[in-house]
Computed example of a mutant assay.
Amino acid sequence: MPIIEANRVRKVYRGDGVETVALRGVDLTVEAGEFTALVGPSGSGKSTLLHLLAGLDLPTEGEVWVGGVWLSRLSRSERARVRLERIGLVFQAYNLLPVLTALENAALILEFRGVPKAERERRALAALEALGLKEKAGRFPRQLSGGEQQRVAVARALAAEPLLILADEPTANLDSKNGLALIERMKALNREQGVTFLFSTHDPRLLEHVKRIVRLEDGAIVGEEWR
C-alpha cells in the first residue's frame, strides 16, 4: 500500500469575491521508503500540496490518503492524531514554543506520545547533535538565530522517527555546512530506518541525493524523473 495517495486533488481558495486555483486535479502516489522532491516555481502549488498531505487543510475536490487513511473523512482532531503518530512536519513557520528550550522543543512530539523522559531527551539530543546544535540544547528560541530555530524544528521531526516526513524547503535558511549535515541525517533515516521523505526544494545540494523529482507548474504535475 502506498504511504501517500492524492487522487484528482483540486484546491481553490475563495475570498473577497476572488477565486484562486492552487491545485488542478493532482494525482500523486508515493511508496514507502521514497526520498522524493517536489520542484517548481513559486506559486506552482508545492506548499499547498504538502499542507493537504499533512491534513492541515482539506482539498476542495479529490481524495488524500496517508498510510491507508482517508484524511478528508477525519475530523480536525483525528487528523491531528494522524500527524502526531505518523507524520513529521518541517514547514516555513517553525512553531517552536518560546517557553521551552531547544531540547524540550525537539522532544515535544515524543512527550505527546508518552515516551519516557530519559528516552525522549536522548533522542532529541541526538537529533540536535546531528544538526550541530548540541551546545545550544539549553537555549530558548529567542536566543537562537533563524537558521538555528529552523534546525530545531527539523530535529523535532527527526527525533520522532515518523513513517513519513513532509518538509517545505528544509535547507532554505541553512549555510552549506549545516545544510549538508541535514541532508546526511535525512538520508541516514531514509536508508537505515525506511523513513519516507517528501519535500519541496530549490536546493541543488539536496536534489543531488533524491531518488525522484516531481515537477509542478501552475498547480499541476507536469513531469517527473526517477534516478
Rank of each mutant, 00 (worst) to 15 (best):
P2Y: 06
P2K: 01
I3R: 05
E5M: 15
A6P: 15
V9Q: 09
G15N: 05
D16R: 13
G17M: 02
G17V: 01
R24G: 05
L28K: 07
T29Y: 10
T29F: 08
V30P: 09
E31A: 14
A37H: 10
L38E: 06
L38Y: 15
K46S: 08
K46I: 11
T48L: 12
H51D: 04
L53Q: 03
P59F: 00
V66H: 07
L74D: 02
L74P: 07
S75K: 04
V82T: 09
L84G: 09
L84W: 00
A93M: 15
L97K: 08
V99C: 09
L100P: 08
T101V: 10
N105C: 05
A106R: 02
I109K: 02
E111F: 06
V115P: 01
V115R: 05
A118S: 07
R122D: 09
A126Q: 07
A137P: 15
F140I: 07
G147V: 07
E161N: 13
P162W: 07
P162E: 05
P162I: 06
L164V: 12
L166S: 02
D175C: 07
K177V: 15
G179R: 06
A181Y: 04
Q193D: 12
T196W: 15
H202Y: 05
E208S: 11
I213P: 01
V214E: 09
R215A: 14
E217D: 11
D218M: 08
G223W: 06
